[in-house]
Design a protein around this nucleic acid. Sequence first.
DNA 1: TTTAATGTTATATTAATTACAAATGAATAA
DNA 2: TTATTCATTTGTAATTAATATAACATTAAA
Lengths: 150, 150
Amino acid sequence: MNNNYRKVSKEMMERLKKKGVRLTPQRLAVIEFLKVHKGHPSVDEIYYAIRRKYPSISPATVYSTLQMLKEMGEIQELHIRADKASFDYNPQPHHHFLCRICGTIMDVEVDCPIRNRKTIGGHKVEKVKAYLFGVCSECLKQESEAKESS
Amino acid sequence: MNNNYRKVSKEMMERLKKKGVRLTPQRLAVIEFLKVHKGHPSVDEIYYAIRRKYPSISPATVYSTLQMLKEMGEIQELHIRADKASFDYNPQPHHHFLCRICGTIMDVEVDCPIRNRKTIGGHKVEKVKAYLFGVCSECLKQESEAKESS
DNA sequence: TTTAATGTTATATTAATTACAAATGAATAA
DNA sequence: TTATTCATTTGTAATTAATATAACATTAAA
C-alpha cells in the first residue's frame, strides 16, 4: 500500500500519536477517505472504496478503525438511517438532514438551544443528535422541473 | 384470544376502521400494550409480552402491525438505540432521552425552534427526531448515594 | 535478530429485520 | 348456511449489519 497520505491532517496525526495510536496504512486510508468524502458514508461504502486501492483490507479493520476514531473524539457516528450507521469526519455536534428521495445525508445549520445544555429535566446530557427528514433542495428542484414540463 | 380490549381508545379504533384497517385481536394486543407500557419498547419486548397471554402470535405480526400503525400516523418509531427500533404510542414529535446506565428511554420537554419549521437551508422538512444521551436523574441519584456512603 | 505487543484478516456468530408461502380467519355472495 | 374471496397471521428462510475470535502479519522494543 502506498504511503501517500498527505491528505490526513498533521494535527490529527499528532493527536492520535500522542494517545499511543499506531497510524497504520489501513487506518490512514479510513481517515483520508472520511476527510475527502464528507457525504457521511456507511461502513461498507468506506470498505469498498478503500478496497479498490487496497484489496486486502477487511471490513473488521474498517469497523475497528471507526470505533477507535470515535473513542478518540476524532469523528462521530450517526444513526439517521434506520438500517446502518453513517460516519461524519466532523466530531462537533450539529444537525443532519436525510433526503427520502436521493438518500443523501447533509449537515444543516441550526441555532439549537439544547446544544449546550448540561442538564434537561434533571438528566445529565452528554450528547445530542438531531435528525431531520424530508426532501432536499436538489430533489425539490427536480420535482418542480418535472411538474413544469408536464 | 379474549376480546377484552377496553384499554384501546375508541377514537383510535374509529380512525383505523375508517381507513379500512381490520382490528384483529393481534393488532389490538399490540396497540393495547403500547398504550399501557409507555416505556418505548422494542419489537421483541412487545412480542414476548403479548406471547405470555397469546402464545400463537408471531414476531412477523408484531412487525407488520407496528409498520401499519406507523403508516397510519398512530405511533412513531425511534432509532435512539443503535441496534434496534423503539416504539412510542405518542405520534407527536418530541425529544427523547436515553440513559447510558439503565437503558431507559424517556420523553423530555424541550422548547424546540425547529419543531415547526417547514424548510431548513432550502430543504423541505417533514419529520424531526432529537435524541439526547447521558445519565438519567434516577441513576444520578444512585451515583451520588454510592459516593456518599464510601 | 529475537521477543512481545499490537493490528489485520478471514471466518463464524449473533441479532434485527424482511420476504414469502402456506394456513387461518373474517366478510360477502349465492 | 355454505362456498368463495380476500386480508391477515404464522412459521420459516433469507438478508444484512455488527461483533467475536483465532490465526497470521507487522511493528516496536530489547
